[in-house]
């Protein structure tokens, strides 16, 4: 079971600052373990983010991203009280959806 994400969403003037911390191994598939066996690739492949019911990010991600990644962005058009729904799916089909509210 994947860890819950930590989502922060805050209005600064008319811009919402959104930061999402995801707990994930993000294995590249290039690494070998102590016994010399390749550690299979395991990484988040798609991320979608909805703010106030509108899709604002529909992203594809790969293995060049660090373990436990942080995804942050700023957007106009959001307001206090909007729901932020983040969803990721990894290459093994594991997934996670978490929510927060713009403050």
């Amino acid at each position: 079971m994947a860890d819950p994400m930590k989502i922060r969403a805050q209005m600064k003037g008319d811009v919402a600052e959104i930061r999402i911390l995801m707990g994930h191994a993000m294995e590249t598939g290039q690494r070998k373990d102590a016994a010399g066996n390749t550690v299979p690739a395991h990484f988040i492949q798609t991320i979608t983010i909805d703010v106030g019911g509108k899709r604002v990010v529909d992203g594809q991600t790969g293995t060049a991203i660090s373990r436990n990644p942080v995804f942050g962005f700023k957007m106009k058009g959001a307001k206090v009280g909007d729901k932020v729904v983040v969803n990721w799916v990894d290459n093994k089909g594991d997934k996670r959806t978490d929510e927060a509210t713009v403050a």
Partner: peptide
């Protein structure tokens, strides 16, 4: 910058 979303929080929760 990193401290604003420190991965340490994941370990805290666990």
């Amino acid at each position: 910058e990193m401290e604003e979303s420190s991965p340490a929080e994941l370990f805290e929760a666990r």
